[in-house]
């Protein structure tokens, strides 16, 4: 464990107070769901037993009551979630490093998401929250949760159907890179589509100004495809040591990461399939399983700077 949640008195007090709120919210939510379920059951029985009209009328009463309960508790739930982010996650961050702080309502703007060039598809729906900023020794960094989707509209018999597909869901991490550079270098996981695109751009013609950069680390080349506006600069950034470090970082994650290097900044996209920094409602705060997971994530992000050795500043960049 990273720091002792069980013996941190201040944090335990906050957690104990919030646990009371959580229990109240959980109880109300459970009641709400039970009423809604009862309402639906009554309507259903009405239809089955041949009394549809009285069934619906009687069923509507608990259904509406349950919905009102859920609606009324919603504000408390939002407040509770925010308090968790600010007080609990915030305190845990300070424990890790004084410079770290979280802003629940801020994130990485859609324009910056496109600017990173990590993904080519323009999002139609974009959500971002939980911006964490800080400094690890000499390197400034920030990261936030991002969910970007695009939609497809298909014609069906009954009109049109809109479907949403993920472009990316996870955490985008940005840090000041320790070398100066002018061009763009992008490292993407070697999926089938990417591999095909790379073959085309190498052998037939290339789109845009970025060519495939063939690197000598064969493990790296098997896992990723690298594009760069300048072949020499891409190699200046991706030294043999950095390639090894990126591979190590990639081994620690479930899904392959993508990286881009633009205007002396490095971006990394970590695909994840759960929402981070969310207060649990139906699980106790006291045993702090969720909190531990969140802290592990933050620590992981914080350690990237060390892992990629971004604090070594011997290349003429202060």
């Amino acid at each position: 464990m990273l720091f002792d949640i069980a013996n941190n008195v201040a944090l335990q007090q906050v957690l104990a107070t919030m646990e009371v709120t959580r229990k109240r919210i959980a109880a109300t939510q459970t009641r709400g769901y039970i009423f809604i379920a009862a309402g639906i059951l009554i309507c259903f029985l009405g239809f089955v037993l041949g009394f549809p009209v009285p069934g619906v009328i009687i069923g509507l009463i608990p259904l509406i009551y349950g919905s009102v309960l859920l609606f009324k508790i919603n504000d408390s739930l939002t407040a509770y979630r925010n308090e968790y982010k600010t007080n609990v996650i915030g305190a845990a961050l300070k424990f890790l490093d004084e410079s770290l702080s979280i802003s629940p309502y801020q994130g990485i703007a859609a324009s910056e998401f496109m600017y990173t060039q990590l993904f080519t598809q323009e999002p139609d729906r974009y959500k971002t929250e939980d911006l964490v900023t800080g400094c690890a020794d000499r390197t400034r960094f920030y990261f936030a949760e991002v969910h970007a989707e695009y939609k497809t509209v298909t014609q069906t018999k009954n009109g049109t159907r809109t479907e949403w597909h993920d472009i990316f869901r996870g955490i985008i991490f940005a840090a000041d890179f320790n070398k100066n550079f002018n061009g763009i270098t992008i490292v993407r996981p070697k999926g089938f589509a990417n591999a095909l695109g790379a073959w085309f751009s190498k052998n037939v013609f290339s789109f845009g100004g970025n060519d495939v950069v063939k690197l000598e680390n064969s493990d790296f080349d098997k896992t990723f495809i690298t594009y760069g506006s300048d072949q020499v600069e891409a190699r200046y950034i991706l030294t043999p040591a950095l390639m090894e470090r990126i591979l190590n970082l990639n081994h620690q994650t479930k899904y392959d990461i993508s990286l881009s290097f633009i205007e002396s900044r490095m971006y990394i996209a970590f695909p994840l399939n759960r929402n981070y920094f969310e207060a649990p409602v139906f699980k106790s705060l006291i045993n702090a399983e969720a909190l531990n997971n969140d802290i592990t994530t933050i620590k992981f992000m914080y350690d990237i700077v060390k892992e990629l050795d971004l604090n070594t500043r011997i290349w003429g960049k202060a």
């Binding site: 063939k214 000598e216 020499v232 600069e233 190699r235 200046y236 030294t239 290349w315 003429g316």
Partner: peptide, 27 residues
């Protein structure tokens, strides 16, 4: 100190250029 940093930077850049050259030669 400045010269030293510039020197290390140029070493790294030359290394990158040599690697680029070798990649083109291999190709």
């Amino acid at each position: 100190i400045n010269l030293q940093t510039t020197w290390t930077e140029s070493e790294e850049q030359i290394a990158a250029a040599r690697r680029t050259y070798n990649a083109s030669v291999t190709d």
